[in-house]
Design a protein around this nucleic acid. Structure first.
Lengths: 213, 213
DNA sequence: GTCTATAGGCAGATAGAC
DNA sequence: GTCTATCTGCCTATAGAC
């Protein structure tokens, strides 16, 4: 499962977010890369423009040229993250046929993030939700909805071809899987043990969606 | 399950944390109450001494008399929270005999917190873990360890008396339950739907620890 | 215990030169 | 696009009067 996830990550990392010209996208993209990591590690309220500027050897003023305010930066972060995630899901769809293996691929995306000592960007922002500007909030909800929808499809496929068995609706089970994996990340990170996530994720997945074959 | 949880909450709320005298505990306790709610709603990096002071019609300087710095306040918050939680668990132990019902009572504690639009204090601090002072970090880990240990005992009891069936060790399953419930809270809160938590929690619990009777 | 007053620093953000 | 310089406000924290 690591292969698929890693491939998806690489592929998306190679794609410019918004290519507005030959040189223009470079700085913008590097700002997003640094800010993304800082948010995933320290939270949206735990980093500043100064932190990002220092890492890139830029000034705060330059950052404000690319992103007028922290809210706009946050929105761009969440939007790009959702795009990359959606892309990773389509890679899974293209490479993996069986529903149970698709679920493993999905969990692998989370594991890859945790391996870099990061929290899921969306999960981190979900914790800080109450302090976020409306556009960022909407992007958080959109990300969760997308994940849920994709998982719902996989679960329905698995139920149809009898490779998965689960109680309740596919939607409910999809929501439980998203919850379970986000929580497994949240809890594993303080311990600094990726293994803790792996064990919980495997148990959550196999009990929520029983593998028939 | 709501009754047990609510009772536990009330009981602990009536108990002074550290009664250092007739008048002394009052302000300290009220500071903790306000700060606790602010952290659970906005995060540790999302509130300030000024916020707490304003709500209590006090000055920031007065807060510093009771808690020298934000780190000490955070530590006191986490410690008191863990004590209350442990107390709630002992109420469950005293009032409920059957393991499956104990699990419901445990999930009910989370639901009670979410009903007040709050995140679990420990879950919130787990997200912000990287920015926290060492004593707060230790308290977060201690809380998680305690929860896990209690759940492990319940699961072993359930396996022994054949009221619960689960795959893997009791410890692993306990960890998955903690992860699952924290995640269900994290995800349900942005939607503002307690129902979302309830559905996920029920499904997580019943699939991780199958009820036999 | 609580206050006023204030320190010293960092936050997000802007103006305008290059 | 990136810089210097600067603003304003809030942050944590302290000194010292009451």
């Amino acid at each position: 499962m690591r292969t698929v996830a890693a491939r998806a990550q690489n592929r998306s990392a190679a794609l410019p977010v918004t290519n507005t010209g030959p040189q223009e996208g470079g700085t913008r993209s590097r700002i997003l890369d640094v800010a993304e990591r800082l948010v995933q590690v320290r939270g949206f309220n735990g980093f500043s423009y100064a932190d990002v500027a220092a890492e890139l050897a830029l000034t705060k003023a330059s950052l404000h040229y690319h992103f007028p305010g922290k809210a706009e930066l946050g929105e761009a972060l969440m939007t790009r993250y959702a795009e990359r995630f959606a892309e990773a899901l389509s890679v899974i769809d293209g490479d993996i046929a069986e529903a149970p293996a698709k679920l493993d691929g999905y969990a692998g995306l989370y594991a890859d993030v945790l391996r870099e000592r990061r929290m899921c960007l969306c999960g981190m922002l979900a914790a800080e939700y109450e302090t976020l500007a409306a556009p960022i909030r909407d992007a958080v909800i959109a990300f969760l909805d997308d994940s849920e929808l994709w998982l719902e499809g996989v679960l329905e496929q698995g139920r149809k071809d009898a490779s998965l068995r689960f109680s309740g609706s596919a939607r409910e089970t999809a929501r439980s899987i998203v919850s379970g994996l986000e929580g497994a990340m949240l809890v594993a990170r303080p311990y600094g043990e990726v293994e803790r996530f792996q064990t919980a994720a495997t148990q959550l997945l196999s009990s929520l969606a029983q593998r028939v074959r």
